[in-house]
């Protein structure tokens, strides 16, 4: 029971990457709106930045899943 609560608390850490992903995506869309031809150039750095930001959220998820499934 306590570990389920701890898993829920661990997922609070997903707030940060959520905000970060939103900022990153909005900036990418902004850049795309300003210069639609640059979509090919923007794509790879965008995916990499998305992955690196998302990793923080995944760490929270892994900790939460471990708390739930490993007894």
């Amino acid at each position: 029971m306590n570990s389920n609560l701890a898993a829920g608390l661990a997922m609070i850490g997903a707030i940060g990457p959520g905000i970060g992903l939103g900022i990153g995506f909005s900036k990418a869309m902004e850049a795309l709106g300003r210069n639609p031809d640059a979509s090919g150039t923007i794509f790879v750095p965008y995916i990499l930045g998305l992955a690196l930001t998302e990793a923080i959220g995944i760490y929270c998820l892994v900790v939460a899943l471990m708390l739930i499934f490993i007894k």
């Binding site: 690196l52 998302e54 990793a55 995944i58 760490y59 998820l61 892994v62 899943l65």
Partner: peptide
């Protein structure tokens, strides 16, 4: 760690 955990976390989730 981040490479392996990212893929594992996503697929397992």
């Amino acid at each position: 760690i981040s490479l392996s955990m990212r893929l594992f976390g996503n697929v397992f989730a």
